[in-house]
Design a protein around this nucleic acid. Sequence first.
DNA 1: CGTATTATTGACCACTCTCAAAAAACGTGG
DNA 2: CCACGTTTTTTGAGAGTGGTCAATAATACG
Lengths: 247, 247
Amino acid sequence: MRGTVLGVVATERDRVDPGIVSCTHCDLGSMAFCAGLSTQQFRRFMSVLGQSSFAPATTIFREGDPQQYLYTITAGSVKLYKLLSDGRRQITSFLFPGDFFGMSIDDNYAYTAESLTTVVVCRFPQRKLEHLFDELPVLEKKLLGATTQELAAAQEQMLLLGRKTAREKLASFLVMLRRRLSERGDGQALFFLPMSRSDIADFLGLTIETVSRTLTGLRREGLIALPDVNHVAIMRFDELVRISDGA
Amino acid sequence: MRGTVLGVVATERDRVDPGIVSCTHCDLGSMAFCAGLSTQQFRRFMSVLGQSSFAPATTIFREGDPQQYLYTITAGSVKLYKLLSDGRRQITSFLFPGDFFGMSIDDNYAYTAESLTTVVVCRFPQRKLEHLFDELPVLEKKLLGATTQELAAAQEQMLLLGRKTAREKLASFLVMLRRRLSERGDGQALFFLPMSRSDIADFLGLTIETVSRTLTGLRREGLIALPDVNHVAIMRFDELVRISDGA
DNA sequence: CGTATTATTGACCACTCTCAAAAAACGTGG
DNA sequence: CCACGTTTTTTGAGAGTGGTCAATAATACG
């Protein structure tokens, strides 16, 4: 099971020649930042773009680092997190192909970005992006749309963190993941979990023990199956949705 | 004390003639959406803008309502919240003059907006705004900046909700309020709390009892003073900051 | 295969919640 | 302006969800 998954990741890595700009590997379609650009606009777009690839568990940038690039994911997944001084951690997002990260208001990143799997990104230097937006306002509109969507997801997550029980949090998490993967073309009941129990705990405001216990509970009730530690199958999706809404 | 505050609110209400476009009451300066526009651009700006005023505790729109307007506050404060089906509530933001609300990705608002005090807003019909952005791209940049800032605040709030203790939450809340009011020109140690204990609880993911007990604790330690239920004075700001960072 | 890391399970505990009552603040009408 | 009823806030006692500490099991990796 795990071999298959690693195989997919390895394939994605192999398809990319790091440092060489090539969009043939990118199957984002209408989700891509560059979608809908004319040939000439696309050429301009490519002139400011850099591509790079990161191995699993690589820190892409740290909270407080000077902001240099805006990133968009073409393959793999990423986590964003913030820390308290004593090491307590809150993961604010798990990101998938098509998602943006690296936006900043002042000149420093407000969170740390770390790869979960092998990740391929397109990278835009902040300064050049300003000019690009003036020439291609449609790109700025896309970024505004993506940021607005991220904000809506953040508000949903605040509701989860502030007001849901452990059981409701896990149900919401699985439903959310399922939906995000569906948007990206994976509609199977069984799916890959790129993050550890510790990551899930730090995303939901729980401990790993509570995550483990609660997943076991959902499995015992027949709502989900856990074929191995990095896969979940949702057996009763509607029931999970009902639980996640607090019903 | 309270008379003074109500006096201010009443004055603001009196300065505005609802339905009549008048910017003389708006002292937002560089914070205003329209700041930096030329006379001609400003005329165009005003042609799509509507103004309105809301009494305290008025629902401006509800979660799920069709999205019609983008709002920016010129006076007063607003809370945004989401509900679970059984009535549990999470307040996602308290908003002050200069803040935006009403953005949406699909065609419905993702949260409810309710006034805390008497509120005066500028209002932009979504359809007209699209055209306005094409003519005045600087406005779209401002909205993107404001949305990015809101997202950063939301991520900070996720850290609070998921990983901070009740004491750290209250300290963070007071520090955050203090800073936001300072940005808006109020630098006094003593300030007005426009929200109830219940609102604070639903913002911090606590119960009103815990909010009350924790505030009493901070008062007993001499970190804050509570002259009346709607005012706080921060006595030891640096110590509150230290607590809020989890130190 | 052996070691290190991660996940699960168990027993116990504490922070915050719930339920309840008292106190304070607010609003209204006389 | 005060008396009254209502709402909000504070304070107290007890309980529960999820956390802590610890041991075992499973998995990853050299």
